[in-house]
């Protein structure tokens, strides 16, 4: 394996992403966790750049690192968080969960490395923002519209769900 710039970039970014995720799992305070996760999302945006998807990278930063993280911070602030001792049931569940996830990861990795994936190499010029915009608004116009309706519904739904109920106010 030649030590190309792409490889170094991928290596650094993936270490950042995985490190952020691991920190997120192991942090004690919820706010730190949110920040670690934002860091991970940011690293993933960098990987998108490596994969010739600059628009997605920007979107990732905007939506995940920006919007969703902020939304989550609001969620954290709106709910109270106590740091109790973990109960025996939770510890037992943690051990079993770790084993299960490890097995799952093992199977996944084994599959990825054993399967002969026929891979091509796309021309970076085909992945420009122009082409993406054309594809979305021509080929995928109807799904795009449906997605916008979905966003609207989700917005209304979220407002209704989070709103205090009438009888509770009184």
């Amino acid at each position: 394996m030649n030590l190309s710039g792409e490889f170094i970039a991928f290596f650094v970014l993936s270490v950042m992403a995985i490190g952020g995720a691991v920190f997120m799992i192991n942090m004690q305070r919820v706010m730190h966790m949110a920040l670690a996760l934002a860091f991970t999302f940011f690293s993933i945006a960098g990987i998108y750049l490596l994969l010739n998807a600059p628009f997605l990278a920007v979107i990732q930063v905007l939506i995940y690192t920006g919007a969703i993280s902020i939304l989550m911070l609001f969620g954290i602030m709106l709910t109270k968080h106590r740091y109790e001792e973990k109960s025996a049931v939770a510890r037992w569940q943690g051990v079993i969960g770790f084993i299960g996830v490890a097995c799952f990861l093992g199977v996944l990795m084994w599959t990825i490395y054993r399967t002969p994936l026929l891979s091509g190499q796309g021309n970076p010029k085909d992945f420009g923002i122009h082409q993406l915009g054309a594809a979305v608004f021509k080929e995928y116009a109807i799904p795009f519209e449906v997605a916008s309706i979905l966003l609207l519904v989700a917005l209304v739904g979220a407002v209704i769900l989070a709103k205090r109920e009438e009888n509770e106010c009184s």
């Binding site: 049931v89 569940q93 079993i96 969960g97 299960g100 996830v101 097995c103 799952f104 199977v107 599959t111 054993r114």
Partner: peptide
């Protein structure tokens, strides 16, 4: 059956792993 979604997910995961391993054990 303790009513916690996380436990159910865990059991589903274990089941899934067993299923995958069972299907691919021959390989």
């Amino acid at each position: 059956q303790n009513g916690q979604a996380q436990t159910y997910v865990l059991i589903s995961l274990i089941g899934f792993v067993i299923l995958i391993v069972g299907l691919t054990a021959g390989r």
